[in-house]
Nucleic acid binder design. Structure first.
Lengths: 131, 131
DNA sequence: TAAACTGTACTACTGATATAGCACAGTATT
DNA sequence: AATACTGTGCTATATCAGTAGTACAGTTTA
């Protein structure tokens, strides 16, 4: 479970933590229903702020990977490997494939990011122009 | 050529401008070799800062879409519709298809963004974990 | 060469995000 | 109920992308 968060990789610590938790669930190191380390202990272990762990946990809960119970703790979702995670896993595989193809065609990561940002915003723009 | 940049759509103005220029090249409104509007006049026309136009132009040059000649002006690249733009167009189509599929599966834009960020950073992280 | 155009470079301001610090609220165990 | 654990919420700080302001450098034309 323990890893070394790299603050200077440009990758947000909470995202690194999320990936780590997911990976541990996939490998079976964390079973459905099992309790995750508390926010404060884990934060102290990783030498990061508890709030950063809390954010990672909250995001994971939003993805349906874990379940947060106020006062009780954080637990691996019962159907973590079944529904939500499976869906995200498929999505992740699709994304990975696309990124891989793009990179193989010589498109830089920066370019890929721009393309996706443009595509995502294209769908979320409220409406047309006012005039 | 003229459009209304929407500062509150969450889409960077310089990106909107880039898309607009590309679109005009695709539709033939701007021909290869043709000179684009100057940075200052265009900025005044769009009621934005000249530097924002400059950034869009610089990015477009980096993509090979246009060519900047210091003191002379900005010109549509001779092979704008052939090589570079075609490549980016294909990439954009690929990205669009992936995003569309993901959204059809109920994945939110925010989730998609996270997935891509994770995937992109996964490729750029220096090494693995130390312990 | 001089003037009026062109793009370029540098610095500053603003807003959003990641992170951190501290106080609050719920749960479990005694 | 009390204590010690758990997650939650609010506020502050640092960093970065986007944007803006201003001064500089190259090109063209008269």
């Amino acid at each position: 479970m323990l890893f070394r968060p790299n603050p200077s990789s440009g990758v947000p610590i909470y995202l690194q933590l999320m990936e780590q938790v997911k990976h541990n669930i996939e490998t079976g190191a964390l079973r459905p229903g099992e309790q995750l380390p508390g926010i404060r202990p884990l934060a102290e272990e990783l030498v990061i702020n508890p709030n950063t762990v809390a954010k990672a946990y909250r995001e994971l809960e939003h993805e349906g990977v874990i379940e947060l119970r106020h006062g009780a703790g954080a637990f691996v979702s019962a159907n973590a490997r079944k529904e939500q995670t499976e869906k995200l896993r498929a999505a992740q595989a699709m994304v990975a494939a696309t990124v891989e193809k793009l990179q193989a065609r010589g498109i830089t990561g920066q370019e890929i990011r721009r393309l996706f940002e443009a595509e995502l915003t294209k769908s979320s723009v409220t409406g047309g122009h006012s005039d």
